[in-house]
Structure formats: C-alpha cells, structure tokens
C-alpha cells in the first residue's frame, strides 16, 4: 500500500498523458511533450554520469580523496574541489550522487557543499553558454560574486554540522 502511494503520482500522470494523446486533449499533449523534453535530457545524461561515478568508486582510493579534499586539506582542497566541479556538466540533481561518493571517500563537509555550489553555478560548459547569451562581463561578474558566497555557505554548513551526526546517504528506492 505504501509502495502504491509512492508511485501513485507518476502512475496517474502517465495515465493522464496516455489518455490525452488518445483523445487529442491538447493541454495534456503539451504536458506530455514537456515531460519528454526533460526526460530526454536526463536519460541521455545521467547513466553516463553514474557510470563515471561507479568507475570513480572502484578506482580512486579513499586515502587519496581524504588527503586532498578531506578535513585537513585547507584552501588547496577547496580549490581542487571547485576545479573538479567546474569541469562537470548537467543539472543540480546530477551532483547529489557525486557528492555522496565524495563523502563516502572522505571528502570534508565543507568541501562537499562548496562542490555543490561550484557545480551549480560556475560549470564551464554552462558558463560558455551564459557568455554567449548574456555577455562576458555579466558572466564574469556573476562568477566572481557567487564564488565567495558558496565558499561561505560551505564554511557555514561545516560549522552547523560539526558534532552532529551528519552523513550523506545513498538513496534507497
């Protein structure tokens, strides 16, 4: 029953979309097209990302991560984690699994949140796109202003979570 409740929204959604196409209900078809647009983006991108995460998991040793971006890694660790995030691509929810893996391998709390901040706001593939549409000055300024802010958020989260039993969990269905 609990399982049914959890899946009832997507089931109803697909039922609605299916019926819309069957009976030529324009609004439903439009929503279905939207869903397909977003789904396509996700299904092409995320499996690749997860394969990368899996490979990362088996090849990179915990000691390495711990040493470079762990608790005692300092500013060098912060820089490293920002560079790593900048080279990636994809929507914010693509970063959560990777954050989990970093956590598992011994990355510090501060660097996990700095990673999320950098990933969401200053990824290079996204910046090139932004510069194209909004100009170099805008992008550069936004990057320079956002950078210290998400580093600050990293420090704040670390301070807040210190002593609390915080962990990044692997989602269970």
């Amino acid at each position: 029953m609990k399982k049914f409740a959890k899946y009832s929204f997507p089931i109803l959604f697909f039922l609605f979309i299916g019926l819309s196409y069957l009976f030529d209900f324009a609004s439903g078809e439009q929503i279905g097209d939207n869903f397909w647009l977003f789904f396509k983006e996700m299904i092409l991108f995320l499996p690749l990302m997860f394969i990368l995460i899996g490979l990362f998991d088996v090849w990179i040793q915990r000691e390495k991560i711990e040493k470079h971006i762990g608790k005692d890694s300092g500013w060098k660790g912060t820089l490293l984690v920002i560079l790593m995030a900048m080279l990636q691509a994809g929507p914010l929810y693509g970063a959560f699994p990777f954050a989990y893996l970093l956590w598992k391998k011994g990355c510090s709390i501060r660097n996990i949140f700095i990673y999320l901040g950098a990933y969401s706001t200053i990824k290079v593939p996204m910046l090139t796109f932004e510069i194209g549409f909004l100009g170099l000055k805008f992008s550069l300024l936004r990057t320079l202003i956002t950078l210290p802010l998400f580093i600050l958020i990293g420090f704040a989260m670390e301070k807040y979570l210190k002593g609390k039993k915080f962990e990044v969990k692997q989602p269970k269905n």
Partner: peptide, 10 residues
C-alpha cells in the same frame, strides 16, 4: 563492478 554499482544507484 564499478559500472554495476553506478547503474544500480541510477
């Protein structure tokens, strides 16, 4: 092993 791990997570 790695690919399986990743895909299960997905």
């Amino acid at each position: 092993k790695g690919v399986t791990l990743g895909l299960i997570m997905f």
